[in-house]
């Protein structure tokens, strides 16, 4: 069972104070910690678990700038055998379908039974790349997957719908599955693994290498155009209770008492 896992490097932004860059089309990335996208980490773990049980190799693939090689190396440290970085200035500014187009081209000369992606990138949050990739490869797909059971020539998966309802499906291999968080317990890379992975080679694929016309990818190949980033309008918002932890807590306790909760 050979598996390709598509991963994206994303900035950690939940706790960061974000600034919109001049020009209004991106954020200031300086100073933000970069990491593997959360659901992609679960996708990688799922691939490791499947290949441990059913043999096979893992190819880890990203479309990104040089910094994203860190994510590929960390994945190799955990057990991915091959790493590919799809890299070309022509890919810059692409939307999700343009990104999927480049990834699909990179998969043309890779042998795989299964492609795993995360279900959503935590930065741009398109929730598109995996499903679009499947359509481009002309193979079946399922996304929001929280259970995978490998059968012969097919997988049985559970998709998580609203309210936690699970939809069970059987899907023929090869297919693309968009993995949701919580499906497994991602492992940490060992120090030894990290040391070994630091010396491993990463294959680079440019648009030209894959026979892709630059006009079909990146900003030029995108059907959507990013116009402007803004901070969400601050509505009424919360009444912020000021002061030291003790003072603010005192105010909150008073409010809760007044409302009859204490």
């Amino acid at each position: 069972m050979n598996i390709v896992v598509c991963v994206k490097q994303v900035p950690e932004t939940a706790e960061a104070d974000l600034k919109i860059a001049a020009g209004g089309k991106g954020i200031v990335e300086e100073g933000l910690a970069l990491q593997i996208n959360e659901s992609d980490n679960y996708a990688l773990e799922e691939a490791l678990l499947i290949t441990e049980e059913h043999d096979g190799d893992i190819t880890i693939m990203t479309l990104g700038h040089e910094s994203s090689e860190e994510v590929l190396r960390m994945s190799m440290a955990k057990g991915a055998g091959t790493a590919v970085r799809v890299a070309d200035p022509a890919f810059d500014g692409g939307d999700a379908i343009a990104t999927a187009t480049a990834l699909a081209a990179a998969l043309k000369d890779v042998e795989y039974d299964l492609v795993l992606t995360g279900c959503m990138a935590s930065d741009d949050g398109a929730t598109q790349v995996g499903v679009a990739l499947a359509e481009l490869l002309d193979i079946p797909h399922a996304t929001y997957v929280t259970e995978v059971e490998v059968g012969s020539g097919e997988v049985t998966v559970g998709r998580e719908l609203e309210g936690g309802l699970i939809e069970k499906l059987t899907i023929k291999l090869p297919c693309v599955l968009g993995i949701q968080t919580g499906i497994n317990e991602p492992r940490y890379a060992s120090i030894m693994g990290i040391a070994r992975a630091s010396k491993r080679e990463i294959e680079l694929k440019s648009a030209g290498d894959m026979g892709l016309d630059a006009s079909s990818v990146g900003a030029a190949g995108s059907g959507t155009v990013l116009e402007e980033l803004t901070f969400p309008p601050v509505g009424e918002g919360a009444d912020i209770l000021e002061g030291t932890p003790s003072e603010a807590s005192g105010k909150l306790a008073d409010i809760l008492k007044e409302k009859g909760f204490v």
């Binding site: 932004t13 939940a14 974000l18 919109i20 954020i27 935590s122 930065d123 741009d124 949050g125 059907g223 959507t224 155009v225 990013l226 116009e227 402007e228 980033l229 803004t230 901070f231 969400p232």
Partner: peptide
């Protein structure tokens, strides 16, 4: 985008 911290306007 970014978990609800930034709004992006897109055209087609």
């Amino acid at each position: 985008i970014y978990g609800g911290k930034v709004d992006a306007r897109l055209s087609f």
